Structures are given as structure tokens and as C-alpha cells.
Amino acid sequence: MEAWNHVFKSRWGGVVATLKEYDARSLEAEAIWGVDARAVTQPLSECVSTLYAAIESYLDDVASEGDIFRADRDFAKKVRSEVFASRSSADNELNKRIASAMDALADFARPHLRHG
């Protein structure tokens, strides 16, 4: 359990720092471009929350010595896919949500960016 806590805590530190910056920029975008900006920034934040919840669930299962996942195999499969899928995993639901959120952000920001 200590090893998993260390691994996830180390990795999550970068996510937290990036999320703080993202949240600040999201608020700036909303102030500049209106409430429509929130609609396109929120889905990525929700994906981060989903990932965090999955990590917490995984660690809870480790702490319970596997009892939680033994009781619900479908939940176990979903959590493991959210926590351990590679970025290139095209059939992973969380990866699809992240890609969709990123595409929506790019589509929203593109007209607002200056070129040249």
C-alpha cells in the first residue's frame, strides 16, 4: 500500500499543479469570452476528477487486500482501465472523454487566437 501511495502521490503532484493553472486560465477565458468558455473547459476538469476518484478506488481496494474489487468485477475493470490505460488506448472510455474535451477546447480557442 505504501508503494502505491508513493507512486500515485508523486505522479499526482504534477497534475495538481497543472490543474491549478488550468483552473485559473479557465476563469480568465470565461471572463473574456463569457459563459460559453466554461462549457468547454469543464469536461476536462471532470475527466481529472474521474481519474482521481479511480485512483482513490484503486488504493482503497489495495488497502482492503482486494475485497472491494472481488465484490464487483465490473467496477474493478472500469477503475483499472481508468487508472492504468495508456494514452494511446483508443478503446478506453476515459481516454475518449479526454480526447473529446481537448478537441472541444481547441475548436473553441482557435477563433480567439491570433496568427502571425
Rank of each mutant, 00 (worst) to 15 (best):
E93V: 12
Y22N: 02
W4K: 08
K77E: 11
A99V: 06
E28I: 09
M102H: 15
E21N: 15
V40E: 00
M102L: 15
F84L: 04
F84W: 06
K20A: 08
D74K: 13
A17H: 06
G14V: 09
I68H: 04
M102W: 11
E30H: 08
I68D: 04
R73W: 13
R11P: 02
F75P: 00
E30F: 06
R110Y: 13
R110F: 10
H6M: 10
F108N: 01
R25M: 13
V62S: 06
K20D: 07
R114L: 14
I55D: 00
D23K: 13
R73I: 11
D74R: 13
K78P: 00
R25T: 05
A85M: 08
R38P: 00
W12K: 03
D74F: 15
A109C: 10
G66E: 01
F8R: 05
H6S: 15
W4F: 11
H115Y: 12
V35A: 09
F108H: 04
A31Y: 12
K78V: 05
S57L: 11
G116H: 07
N95R: 07
D23L: 11
R11K: 12
L94F: 02
Y58A: 03
V79K: 01
P111K: 14
A3M: 12
A90Y: 12
L27Y: 13
E56Y: 09
G116D: 09
A29K: 04
S88C: 05
D36Y: 05
I98N: 01
R70G: 01
D67E: 14
E93F: 09
R25C: 05
S64K: 15
A71Y: 04
A39K: 10
S57V: 05
E30L: 06
A31Q: 13
K77Y: 09
A53S: 10
V83E: 02
T41K: 00
S81A: 09
A76Y: 05
A29V: 04
I55V: 09
G34V: 03
S81I: 03
M1C: 11
T41V: 09
